[in-house]
Amino acid sequence: MHSRTIKCFISVAESLNFTKAAHENFVTQTTISRQIASLEEELGFSLFERNTVKVVLTPAGRSLYCDLKRIVKECDAVISKAKEISTNIKGTLKLGYSTDLGPKCILDIIPIFQDLNNNVKITLNQETPINLISQLQNGSYDIIAILTPELHNYKDIVSVPACRYNILLAMSKNHPLATRSEIPSKDLRNYKICTASKRDAPGMYEYALEAFRKDGYEPALLETDTYESQKLMAILGEGIAFYPDTGEISEKDHRLSYAHLTETHHSYSIDYAWLQDNKNIYIKKFIDTVDAFNDR
């Protein structure tokens, strides 16, 4: 059974008209009639019932049409995918990063990845950690950048370390600790600390609470929902914000004073994560870029 014969059969089955099917395939009616007759002989059963009034599919013909139509569609998709790979036609990689992170954690990698894969379209959005994981699982994202504690207990998600940072504290310039460049964790015991909310970032909330306890005290936590909310609360003097010490935070707002957190169990560990059964070929390419970046 040749592909051209299959195409002619599908045309006749859909139009139920040999003349129209012949025009669609740029052949004569006699040619298409011979192809159908040859196919029926090859298969050993009739595909159409013909009379002077109309053409109709036999039950066997209808079954064959439905299955061949599906197979042809699948073959077209397979060929299209292979063409994209062979010609490097633009693909898409959907990236997301957590609201309790600054964008630097992922923006450092994107230009390097794009230099190596300049025909890949990248989309980038920010979500709360809990929403980020949910949307990774439903396919809205291919890869997410998220704090490592948020990934515990998700067996369908795999990840690699992206980066690890010490803690940078941000506070109002009027804060009692604002003149210090380094602050041991124990010196924070009498001050409110801005942290990710338990609702939106349950993993990080529990991690932070445990780290404070290992540092020797029970913290006064002020829950916030985003990176920007923490900064606002710090500017207003409501609490001390915790950030990864990436070098970008201190460049952003002159209304804040910054200090390094010392003598602590706290750190920022960030992972790139993706769904185990996601078949997007650019995930591996992105992760290879991450590995090369980290090995520099």
Rank of each mutant, 00 (worst) to 15 (best):
L64M: 13
K192E: 09
L124A: 05
D253V: 04
Y141S: 12
L275P: 01
I110E: 01
S269M: 02
D245M: 14
E263S: 07
Q137M: 08
A273P: 11
F212E: 09
S269A: 13
R164E: 15
I235C: 11
L221Y: 04
A60E: 14
I130K: 09
L93N: 00
P149G: 04
N119D: 07
A77C: 00
I36R: 01
S63W: 04
S11R: 03
K285S: 15
T179N: 09
I36N: 01
L64V: 12
H265Y: 14
W274Y: 14
Q35M: 11
S46I: 03
L68F: 11
V53M: 10
Y217V: 09
P219T: 07
Y205Q: 02
A241I: 06
N138G: 01
C66R: 12
S185N: 01
N166Y: 10
K284M: 02
E74Q: 14
D115I: 05
K104M: 10
D76F: 05
H260C: 13
S33P: 03
I110D: 01
I109R: 01
A208P: 02
I79F: 05
L232C: 03
D245Y: 12
D295V: 05
L169A: 11
M233S: 11
L169M: 07
K83M: 05
P111K: 00
F9S: 00
Q114W: 01
N138Y: 02
C194L: 14
E210K: 10
Q230K: 09
L147M: 13
I10D: 07
Y65V: 08
P219H: 11
I193F: 03
E263Q: 13
M233H: 13
E49K: 09
K54M: 08
Y165L: 00
L39K: 05
L116H: 07
W274F: 12
K252I: 09
G203E: 11
K90D: 10
S11Y: 00
P176R: 01
A13Y: 07
